[in-house]
Design a protein around this nucleic acid. Structure first.
Length: 604
RNA sequence: GCCCUCGUAGCUCAGUUGGAUAGAGCAGUGGUUUCCUAAACCAAAGGUCGCAGGUUCAAUUCCUGCCGGGGGUACCA
């Protein structure tokens, strides 16, 4: 929670009330617990129901200390605190405190909350929600990282969008952020592709719609290999040749790679996803030997079943394989080399790997390996990356009741989904707003917005179901709902013929609906920090939905006559006050959508 | 077998370090537009929080066991 003046006043007032009401207990206990305003501050909570107040102090746990019953404590302290508040200030009390059972609920003075919040938002503008907590510390975020020679499926979307959003969030908090796309362009799978291509493919396979053709080859390989395991041996052999630099294998590999790269670039552009560094596994080919050597030097390696391994001293985890029995390397070999390389190169504050939870054991292995190595080298804390590298895991994208798996061909092509969503959006625009000039562009924005938001509106750790009906529904808790609300706010701003200013009567914004909107606006900076702390953009998505809902209720509020209480009316003073709130909401929704990686249309 | 993870309304999900009558959206029901964009808003309806114990003033939240889904478990990435 942000240190705002409302909370500070509340804490000082209640601490004073406790001291005077329970003077004998205070004498014995001293300046601890509820007698300390700092302690109270740390124990503030947010009520479940916003109508109960903006923040609250539960007093249950102080029953023993005060030898009093919680409801009785609250009932005594509330009026005493209020008395303290009104006597210590001239003018109206800054917060009003109410007892409710064992809780002390606090409601900031609506007019003061409106002025401090709206002034803060409008002064900061697009920078509202930013902070300097990052202090330019280096943070690496690896995300997306699809495998070459496979199509970009909905399954890749989760990592891509979570990472893309985290990159923006950390940038907003002034971290020196580096988004990394680590393409899978090496490994036995390319042996498989080469074998499959030679068996069933031709030049044509690489021409039209070739990414799709590559997928078919890949799936066919796995289907056939189930019956005939000699194919797997062939694949290992082909990869070994590739790794040894055999010309015909390398040529094929490069063709696969180029096809995929072109495809990926197009998709990232469509999604608005950015990276600061696009690298790949093969980039590390010449760095693996040194990595292995350093592990050997640290005395960590051994030979087991003719493979080179690091036994990581953990009964729960298997050893890390660095070299297979046939001498070829593995993904882990490259990842380890990559870890060392990035640490050496960037000396990061943190390095994040946005990768599915299926690989959580694997990351535990890697981190353990680092820990052992740095211990063996007896590095100083400053020189250790141990503890700075994190696996940001997330749940599966499920399709039907199965996890999406390229190998089983259970995959939905991302582009198909976006196309379908955009098409539907276009249809809706033609019905609702046929005069819109930018139909094509706007329907694209809405379609991608729907798809992206579907990935961010569930907590990171949980599986997310891909369901056509849900993705193509633009109502309720969806990206298009937020975008629509934004367009509506922009429309109000267009219709207002004055200038937006904070030179207004904030008392006109003291209604319940307005106060709810204002509370949420005030929470936004905290929400951004929460999202960074838990590496989960979901917090922002959830907050925006609440904000949009709160605004829409305000927008459609009816007066006593049952008519809409319009934001813009003949009452100039009222319109000026309301438009300042409108502008604030528009800025925050715009910023929030940006941090999530969605575009915010002006009109739709 | 062992390890990890999840189990909340018909469906999809929230529920912050334990706290106030467990909240939204979708679907379904009823309503709101002389139109500041109805992709919206309002109302009613819908729940033994997987099951059983335990810790606590207080458990959906923490601990143990069981049941059920998913994942992982050295030469895939």
């Amino acid at each position: 929670m942000a240190k705002d003046k409302f909370k500070i006043s509340f804490c000082e007032a209640t601490a004073a009330a406790f001291k005077s009401l329970y003077a004998d207990k205070y004498e014995n206990a001293g300046d601890v617990q509820i007698f300390s305003s700092n302690f109270i501050y740390e124990n503030l909570e947010k009520p479940k129901d916003p109508s109960m107040g903006r923040f609250a102090l539960p007093v249950f746990r102080f029953g023993k200390l005060l030898e009093d019953k919680p409801p009785s404590i609250a009932a005594k302290v509330a009026p005493e605190s209020n008395k303290f508040l009104s006597s210590s200030q001239n003018g109206p009390a800054i917060v009003i405190i109410e007892a409710a059972g064992g809780f002390l609920n606090a409601r900031p003075n609506a007019e003061l909350a409106a002025s401090s919040t709206i002034e803060a938002v409008l002064a900061a503008g697009k920078d509202y929600g930013n902070s300097t907590v990052g202090q330019q510390r280096k943070i690496l975020i690896e995300y997306s990282s699809p495998n070459i020679a496979k199509p970009f499926g909905v399954g890749h979307l989760r990592s891509t969008m979570i990472g893309n959003s985290l990159r923006k969030i950390f940038k907003a908090l002034d971290y020196d952020t580096m988004g990394i796309n680590f393409l899978g362009d090496w490994g036995t799978q390319f042996g498989k592709m080469i074998v499959a291509y030679r068996k069933w493919g031709s030049e044509d396979t690489l021409k039209n719609n070739s990414a799709q053709n590559l997928l078919e080859l890949y799936v066919k390989f796995h289907e056939t290999a189930k019956e005939d395991s000699s194919l797997d041996d062939d694949a290992r052999e082909a990869f070994k040749k590739l790794e040894q630099g055999e010309k015909s294998e390398v040529e094929l590999w490069e063709k696969f790679k180029n096809i995929s790269r072109t495809e990926f670039d197009r998709i990232y552009k469509m999604l608005g996803v950015e990276f600061d560094w696009v690298t790949s596994e093969s980039f590390l080919n010449d760095k693996m030997a040194a990595a292995i050597e350093s592990l050997e030097k640290a005395g960590l390696t051994s030979i087991s079943e003719s493979a080179l391994i690091v036994d990581i001293d953990d009964p729960q985890l298997p050893p890390v394989l660095l070299r297979k029995a046939d001498g070829a390397t593995l993904y882990a070999t490259r990842d380890v080399a990559g870890l060392f390389y990035r640490w050496q190169e960037y000396k990061f504050y943190q390095s994040l790997y946005v990768v599915g939870s299926a690989q959580s054991d694997y990351f535990k292995q890697l981190f353990k390996l680092i820990e052992l190595k740095e211990k063996a080298e007896s590095l100083s804390d400053n020189d250790r990356m141990s503890g700075k590298v994190k696996h940001i895991e997330f749940g599966w994208v499920k399709f039907g009741d199965k996890a999406m798996s390229t190998r089983q061909g259970n995959i939905v092509i991302l582009e198909d989904v976006i196309d379908k969503a955009a098409e539907l959006a276009k249809k809706r625009i033609k019905e609702k707003n046929p005069k819109l000039k930018t139909i094509e562009e706007t329907s694209r924005i809405i379609g991608t917005g729907a798809v992206i938001f579907s990935q961010l509106s569930v907590r990171r750790q949980k599986d997310v179901r891909f369901d056509w009906d849900q993705v193509l529904n633009f109502e309720g808790e969806t990206g298009p709902y937020l975008q629509y609300t934004h367009a509506r706010l922009c429309s109000l701003l267009r219709n207002y013929d004055g200038k937006v200013t904070t030179d207004i009567d904030f008392a006109l914004l003291a209604g319940n609906e307005e106060s709810r909107v204002i509370d949420l606006l005030a929470d936004f900076p905290d929400t951004v920090e929460d999202a960074a702390r838990d590496y989960d953009p979901f917090y922002i998505a959830a907050m925006l939905l609440k904000l949009a809902g709160a605004f829409n209720r305000f927008y459609q509020r009816k007066n006593a006559q049952g008519k809409i209480d319009r934001i813009l009316s003949d009452n100039k003073e009222l319109s000026a006050a309301r438009i300042a709130l409108v502008k604030s909401v528009q800025l925050v929704i715009n910023k929030g959508l940006y941090l999530l990686g969605l575009e915010a249309p002006q009109e739709m």
